[in-house]
Design a protein around this nucleic acid. Structure first.
Lengths: 166, 166
DNA sequence: TATCGTATGTTATAGCATAACAGTCAAGAA
DNA sequence: TTCTTGACTGTTATGCTATAACATACGATA
């Protein structure tokens, strides 16, 4: 009854009901946080909303602007602390290539996702990529390296931008 | 007659004759640059030497300090321009996770290598990781994404540090 | 109510990166 | 030779990213 997994994990590159992104994921985030005894406070919740609304990767200072506009503190640590919390809880991800953050699109799953970054429209899609993790694990065990964190960031062109961009 | 590929690609985690790293790789770099009509000028060559000598990832400002000590310009663009050149030529890599740069250990090969970063000793090993690239290509083609660049950075513990570190 | 831990707010500063312009120099054209 | 051009290097100035350190607020609990 469900779509193929690949399509679900790359919802960002497909048309979809945007309001569901925010609403459902916010509710899921609250549930997850409660279950873990982590506190999804107003600032933290608002930062997650901001990321969900943006629907792309945002720099910490972009988040901060929006926070400040809502009456929260307007100094960098306010944004960074909330973002760090969300990343620790797996509710958001940091994209190293972009020095930016985005909401996680499937926070309930354990993951080290693969990010596909379109250089034309700047949309970032998150995919589960179990094959990639397995391949890394394989290479790592070959050299006796113990993997703790894994960053996989792919840049290129998303389907929609291939006809438009160079 | 040669060692297994895995061992060669992770020379950084094994004892080895350090002077060869610099000498051989500098010569290779010169050859490659000549063949491409790219100019390995004194500053650029010195930056590559600095990276080879450090044998770890260096921040641009660390490179700059050493350059300045040798009488080259001591403003950031001097270091960044040389580093950018080396990265473009495949003679060095940028490690996004660390905001740092390191010499490429096998510049003659085409690659989007996998980096293994030890959180304890900060050594960075570069591995070819063809399986990882294949897995990413597979995931990408499943969603119609055209891959242009690929960043794979793994952090954890290298063999030597597993007994020492937590 | 006193204390403690967690979270937020604020100040100040550190670290990373680049735009814009000026000067140098070698190679080829006039 | 002289001029022009293009690539490289040097310098100034600035902007973006991130965190240390300290102050304040507030709820939970002893």
């Amino acid at each position: 009854m469900s779509k193929p997994a690949a399509a679900e994990t790359t919802i960002a590159f497909s048309p979809h009901d945007h309001s569901h992104c925010s609403g459902d994921l916010l509710a899921t985030a609250q549930t997850l946080a409660d279950a873990r005894g982590a506190r999804l406070t107003p600032v933290r919740r608002r930062v997650l909303e901001i990321l969900l609304e943006a629907h792309r990767a945002l720099g910490a200072y972009e988040v901060l602007e929006r926070l400040a506009a809502d009456g929260y503190g307007n100094q960098p640590p306010v944004a960074y602390r909330a973002l760090d919390f969300l990343v620790e809880q797996g509710l958001a991800h940091r994209i190293d290539r972009l020095n930016a953050f985005m909401a996680c699109t499937h926070p309930a799953d354990a993951h080290n996702p693969v990010f596909f970054i379109c250089r034309h429209c700047h949309t970032v899609a998150e995919a589960a990529g179990p094959l990639v993790r397995a391949a890394v694990a394989d290479t790592a065990s070959g050299i006796g390296f113990v993997v703790e964190r894994l960053t996989v960031e792919v840049s290129g062109l998303c389907p929609a931008c291939q006809t438009v961009a160079a």
